[in-house]
Design a protein around this nucleic acid. Sequence first.
DNA 1: GGCATTACGCTACGACCCGTAGCGAAAGCG
DNA 2: CGCTTTCGCTACGGGTCGTAGCGTAATGCC
Lengths: 211, 211
Amino acid sequence: MQSSSPAGRAGRPRSAAADAAILAATRAALVDLGWSKLTLGDVATRAGVAKTTLYRRWSGKNELVVDAVAELFDELELPDRGSLAADIEGVVLQFAAILARPEARSGLMAVVAESTRDEVLRERIRTSIVERQKRLVLEGRARAQARGELPPEPDAAEAARTADLIFDMVAGAVVHRTLVSAETASGDWVRSLTRVLLWGLTSRPDEPGDG
Amino acid sequence: MQSSSPAGRAGRPRSAAADAAILAATRAALVDLGWSKLTLGDVATRAGVAKTTLYRRWSGKNELVVDAVAELFDELELPDRGSLAADIEGVVLQFAAILARPEARSGLMAVVAESTRDEVLRERIRTSIVERQKRLVLEGRARAQARGELPPEPDAAEAARTADLIFDMVAGAVVHRTLVSAETASGDWVRSLTRVLLWGLTSRPDEPGDG
DNA sequence: GGCATTACGCTACGACCCGTAGCGAAAGCG
DNA sequence: CGCTTTCGCTACGGGTCGTAGCGTAATGCC
């Protein structure tokens, strides 16, 4: 059977241009129609491909939108702005800018909602979207520890729990601010968020208000 | 025309029992089918009413699910546990318990996603769900100020901005932890979240790490 | 009690979308 | 040149949507 080509089987190869066109058409349809009114037939027409071609590559609407939205987060990276506070503010502003785009707003929340009843979809979202964001938290902390802004963590498990907490707080706050409260994540707001986070993480345990 | 009855017009009144049955059936359908596979015909059958009756009261799936999910948050209240930290932990645990229910998980995120393209729906979510949660933040702060745990705020606008920030951080963190990271908001996690928040809010501005 | 008014249950309907099957043509590989 | 796979196109049964129409049930007003 497959003798020479490593991954490419015999026969006509799939068009890479079609993949890009379909994902772009999906984002355009999300902008124009939103999640619930988006139909795969319409996406195929926008992309200039047959509906059957679309179904050969994606099993359904959920998977298609996950891939289309995931590409939006490709531009996320951790800039080196010299201090932990500035690094956090920079990446949060990037994240907020992505969530300000209508194709991200309507698409991301919808697939997350669907993922509560679809374990495979949830894993797809995790690997293609969430894990990439969480990596920024780990990189930012490592960089801050190298700078001496944060102390090294002796307990690896505790360090992982803290990173998860920070990730949920930052990403959750931005998402909630943008999609639920429907307010823009302005520079002032991001600075306030960063201030609370950093003071909360670096303050000494002076038993403030505990019984 | 309408001479005596204040709000009730002439004719057969709408069945209040039908309203309750429809909303309960909607939640049951959310548990069994999730958002995307939920159909209004199925909800009507579950509730024991005709499909036309359902359409006479709700304009569509979005509005129906908002009302069905909103009832889940009726039980939210601010317990007086003696300290600000304990109060926060209590209400966050209540919030997390609601979000642990499948009808809330699949329904809430879906309507929020739809609300990004529907201003009327967004306002409906705000008044019936979000604003009720935000009120707990304001009550909790007022109680903490009465206890002397927090200083009084001279600037009302700044106080409102801080309350909005705290609300987005708390609600966003719990939602993100529960629905995106798909981990339970355990007691340990809630205590860690509360610790970061309180230290972040009560620490003195000693310029920690700023240039 | 009779009457107007409104809600209700039921059926039926056109419109739309889904997801798939089948076909002939096109584009690669050996 | 064959073999294989993809592609575009058409067509189809099945399901849901949202509405219209009808007869019936329940209330307020006289």
